[in-house]
Computed example of a mutant assay.
Amino acid sequence: MIEADPQATQKKSATRIQIRSLNKYYTMGRTVVPALRGVNLEIKHGEFVAIMGPSGSGKSTFMNILGCLDRPTRGEYILDGVSVGQMSNTELADVRNQKIGFIFQSFNLLRWMSAQANVELPLVYASISKEERQARAKRALSLVDLSSRANHRPMELSGGQQQRVAIARSLVTSPSLILADEPTGNLDSHTSLEIMRIMQELNARGMTIVLVTHEQDIADYCQRKVIFRDGRVVDDLANPQPLNAREQLSKHTATEQVQP
């Protein structure tokens, strides 16, 4: 069980992400394609936010900008009080490595490496000693209940276990922000609940999480739902009573056990 951060409530009063008049255009030949059109958004410390919308709505472009993988055409992105829009490529890489943890739908694990080695990878680029890398990776795997699978390769793990390795990898640098792109998209309903349980427990420790999903039932576990359409935010809905993934997982397990 992941213990709650006693300061999480106080931290929520501070702003983690500020997006101001964000625009992104792509040029395809002579055609200019708008992906984002004047997006304004704030996300507080410790929030758990679902980003939703149909294909082509701009949510993936928005997440790429949040993750410092792309730059806006116009507008401002402020992370932890620092504007990242004018940073050099090296500075953006430092932000990605130090402040942001990424979780992908396809896991993005190296199949020839153990779970432990996959989790250690972000620390290799940070020039951290082998002993410290191993210690941090073990702690991260413990947080997602995978200590016993540390020496297994991805193909020896279930889909849910692979995603938990990916979550551990996102945590190993102690980021201030987790960006999750369809983290349950390739998983069955039971395993999806396991992933959402872990995400909620991380959020209870004060972790800020922004999650892209097209599944309404997954968004119901988040505290807030931001809806994109045609490159704009068309709705921003508070979810004051998110579903509790641990409770839903227990119910789901009980139902599976009584079925013939």
Score class of each variant (00 low, 15 high):
E3L: 07
A4S: 12
T9H: 15
Q10C: 04
K11E: 12
K12P: 08
R16G: 11
Q18I: 06
R20E: 15
S21G: 15
N23Q: 13
Y25N: 12
Y25S: 07
Y26G: 03
R30A: 09
E47Q: 13
F48T: 05
G58C: 06
T61F: 11
L66C: 04
C68S: 14
L69K: 10
D70V: 05
T73Y: 08
G81L: 00
V82R: 08
S88D: 06
N89Q: 13
A93F: 01
N97D: 09
I103W: 12
L109N: 08
S114L: 00
A115K: 05
S129P: 12
R139A: 13
S142R: 04
M155Q: 10
S158L: 02
V165G: 02
V172C: 09
S176L: 06
I178F: 06
L179T: 03
A180T: 00
D188R: 05
R197Y: 08
I198F: 05
L202D: 01
L202E: 05
N203M: 05
A204M: 03
G206I: 12
M207R: 04
T213R: 07
D220N: 14
Q223M: 04
R224P: 08
V226R: 08
V226M: 05
D235R: 12
D236N: 15
L237H: 11
A238E: 14
Q241F: 01
Q248T: 09
K251E: 14
A254P: 04
V258P: 03
